[in-house]
Design a protein around this nucleic acid. Structure first.
Lengths: 231, 231
DNA sequence: TCATAAAACTGACTTAAGTCAAGGAAATCC
DNA sequence: GGATTTCCTTGACTTAAGTCAGTTTTATGA
């Protein structure tokens, strides 16, 4: 099926991790990697499963999470297109340290471990790109850690909404907004709380006149106030 | 001063990051890096300062932390000898994203950014080592994040003590123990709480017959129980 | 389009852990 | 070796956020 191959190649170009590679290198990668698609709620892999390789999300969204023994879920990342995930064990050995689940219909590129490690040995550029990617991720997780231990839920929610508004690109509208595409339970687990508390926090931000809620759409009435809460 | 140079070279050998390098490469590194020593409570660098390079701890211990606007401290890492710190911004640009302070008299090797990046371009092995280091760190921070949002303080303390007992190497004694070398306030900020709550948690573990406290020494009376609490 | 299930909300209650204030123990310094 | 500072502990109180239980709203699929 040459269509998929071309699609791979075209898309590979846009993946930060691969952006500087030559056509031949991209062709090589697409030769040993595989497209895998998932329905909403499908598991992509489970914690402790044998590690086979990593994924790049092409379409849709994915949550990366851990379950505690009591069954409580911590969402570590919400993956958006063109981002790699489950790449850490490449260099660590061991099984998958987390689980991943599609939040909507999603398309991924699966890149098997061995083949990719071979490539990286011959291609120092890729490892530098990966280092940059890891560095970014470390920074973001450190941020999350700091937030969770020093801020209250409404502040964390404000920060989350702010980030979403930025990625939605509506920040400069008179009334910025986001459409929540992932369930509130996932947002709750991501900002380190539970749905009930999240619900109350939404209400609090509303009562303070900072946001306005209309179904799944959140309108920001007071961007300054939201920023103030977030920092 | 040839003594320091030799000391560098000998020590570089033992640093995981450099363990696989040739003598010439080690010599090169030691030629452009500098020993820096710090007294207890000395700042090594501050958040937002211009990034000049990273450090490897040779002797002593260092806390890497962030201060929230309200002045609350989150301790992200407690660095022990032969570990690199502040290496993330090498690949990320920007200033120091955290602060670092010596917890006791400490000796570090300072490695300037530009020179090291040059080395890494010519030496793919080093970047693979760094990738492994980052991967390990990511895993540990993810663990911290999960703990902090799913476990209570006494559980987190149990986990901390368990790790300390392991690194102290007393795990297999009839009564394993650790000597706390860092202030309780730092332990508290590391496990995401405050000194008062930490103090009460120590008491709780004592009342439950799991540990026995003698000054700065903590004896583990019930290792099984401690492990149970920690997981 | 209705029926069933999933997701989100609300109120009453409980609890872990933070705040404030004070006292005691240890380390550190002339 | 006493004094000062730093560190640690304790008690009384407050509060943010979790639990539980019930209801409403929104999706989803026959």
């Amino acid at each position: 099926m040459p269509g998929t191959l071309i699609e791979n190649k075209d898309t590979l170009r846009n993946i930060p991790l691969f952006s500087e590679l030559s056509i031949e290198q991209l062709r090589k990668i697409s030769s040993f990697s595989k497209l895998k698609s998932f329905e909403k709620r499908d598991r992509i892999f489970n914690e402790d499963e044998c590690y086979l390789g990593f994924y790049i999300l092409l379409k849709g969204s994915v949550k990366v999470f851990k379950l505690s023994r009591s069954g409580k879920e911590s969402v570590l990342h919400i993956i958006r297109p063109l981002t790699a995930f489950a790449d850490i064990p490449l260099f660590e050995g061991g099984n998958y340290p987390v689980s991943a689940e599609a939040l909507e219909e999603s398309l991924t590129l699966f890149i098997p471990k061995e083949k990719f490690l071979e490539l990286i040995y011959t291609e120092p550029d890729v490892s530098l790109k990966m280092l940059a990617g890891f560095a970014k991720r470390l920074k973001s997780i450190i941020n999350q850690l700091e937030d969770i231990s020093s801020k209250e839920v409404p502040n964390r929610l404000a920060k989350y909404l702010l980030k979403e508004v930025k990625t939605a690109g509506t920040e400069n509208l008179p009334e910025p907004f986001v459409k929540l595409t992932i369930p509130k339970s996932t947002i709750a687990a991501y900002i380190g709380t539970i749905t009930e508390t999240l619900s109350r926090s939404f209400k609090k931000l509303q009562d303070e006149g900072i946001i306005r809620v209309n179904g799944k759409k959140i309108f920001v009435k007071d961007l300054k106030g939201l920023k103030e809460l977030a920092k």
